[in-house]
C-alpha cells in the first residue's frame, strides 16, 4: 500500500496525463463523426480478418450438422419426386387420380454402430418404429445399396449389411439386364459375389451392377458396385466379383427406403406359390 502510494506520488503527472489524454481521445473518438467512422473501420478491418478465420474453423466443426440437414433434405426431396412422378412412362395424370400411388418413401438416418469384420455384419441406425421404420426396408448410402432392416426398436433399427453371408439380393448387370443372385462370401469387405449369370452373356470389367426391384425391398436401379473380376465357376454360370460402391467402413449417413406397395406385391405373389 505504501509502495503504491509512493508510486502514485512519484508518477502523479503521468497518471494525470494518461487520464486527461484518455478523456480527450475519447471525446475525439465519440463526438466526431469522421474520427468515429475511421476508428470503427480500422477496428473492423482487424477483427473481420480474425472473424473470418474463426468462422472458417467453426463452419468446419459444423459440417456434421450441415451434412445431416442436407441428407434430411435430400430424403424429403426424393420422397417428393417419387410422389410427383410415380413413373416416367406415365406422362399425363390427374392430380386427384386415385390410381396413382406414391411407391417409395425416403427417410434419412445416421449409422450409430457398424461392423465389417465379421461373417454376419449388421449395423444400427438411429431411427426406429416411432420414425416409421419397419423390417424389410432398404437402406442405401449415397444412392448405393447398403443393407436391409431386420429389426426395429422404438428409436433404433438394426439392418443386415450387404456384408452378411445370409444376405441375398437380386441384382443385374446394368448394360444388358441379365440378373442373378448377389451375396457375400465373407472374405473381403470391398467385394461381393454375383452368381447365376449365364455364360453366354457378354459384359466387361467395370460394368455397373444394380438392383432389380424383384424382391420388393430395393427399388430397381440402385447401384451396388462394378464388376472387378469374373470367372467360370463350373456349370453354366459365371462367378462375378463385384467391388461395392460404398465404403462400408465409413458408412455414416444413410437413406431408408420403404416400399408402400410391398404388402400388395407379396400378397399377390403368395397366391401362386
Amino acid at each position: 500500500m505504501r509502495n503504491l502510494l509512493n508510486f502514485l506520488a512519484k508518477y502523479n503527472h503521468l497518471i494525470v496525463f494518461i487520464i486527461l489524454e484518455g478523456i480527450a481521445l475519447y471525446m475525439l473518438g465519440t463526438a466526431n463523426n469522421y474520427h468515429n467512422t475511421r476508428i470503427v473501420r480500422g477496428i473492423r478491418s482487424v477483427t473481420s480478418n480474425f472473424e473470418k478465420r474463426v468462422n472458417n474453423t467453426r463452419s468446419y466443426f459444423q459440417l456434421r450438422t450441415i451434412s445431416q440437414s442436407l441428407s434430411r433434405e435430400n430424403a424429403s426431396l426424393r420422397s417428393t419426386i417419387d410422389r410427383i412422378s410415380p413413373n416416367a412412362e406415365q406422362l399425363f395424370f390427374s392430380v386427384t387420380d386415385t390410381i396413382r400411388h406414391q411407391h417409395y418413401t425416403y427417410t434419412s438416418a445416421e449409422v450409430v454402430s457398424n461392423s465389417v469384420n465379421r461373417q454376419k455384419n449388421f449395423f444400427t441406425i438411429n431411427k426406429g418404429k416411432l420414425q416409421g421404420m419397419s423390417t424389410d426396408m432398404a437402406v442405401i448410402s449415397d444412392g448405393c445399396a447398403a443393407g436391409v432392416i431386420v429389426g426395429c426398436s422404438n428409436n433404433y433399427s438394426v439392418a443386415m449389411s450387404l456384408l452378411n453371408i445370409d444376405f441375398k439380393l437380386s441384382a443385374r448387370i446394368k448394360s444388358n439386364g441379365y440378373f442373378g443372385s448377389l451375396s457375400w462370401d465373407g472374405k473381403d469387405y470391398r467385394t461381393v459375389i454375383l452368381n447365376e449369370i449365364p455364360q453366354h452373356v457378354t459384359f466387361g470389367i467395370g460394368d455397373t451392377i444394380e438392383t432389380t426391384g424383384y424382391s420388393a425391398i430395393f427399388p430397381e436401379g440402385i447401384t451396388i458396385g462394378t464388376v472387378k473380376h469374373f470367372e467360370k465357376s463350373g456349370g453354366d454360370f459365371y462367378k462375378i466379383e463385384v467391388s461395392v460402391a460404398n465404403d462400408f467402413r465409413q458408412l455414416r449417413f444413410v437413406n431408408v427406403i420403404g416400399n408402400l406397395l410391398r404388402e400388395e406385391q407379396i400378397g399377390l405373389e403368395k397366391q401362386f406359390q
Binding site: H13, F17, L20, E21, I23, A24, L25, Y26, M27, L28, G29, A31, N32, H35
Partner: peptide
C-alpha cells in the same frame, strides 16, 4: 472539434517540464 485540441494541448503540457 471535441477532443482534438484537448488531446494536443495535454501532450504539450506533458512535455513542457
Amino acid at each position: 472539434t471535441p477532443g482534438m485540441h484537448s488531446a494536443a494541448t495535454v501532450v504539450a503540457g506533458f512535455v513542457r517540464p
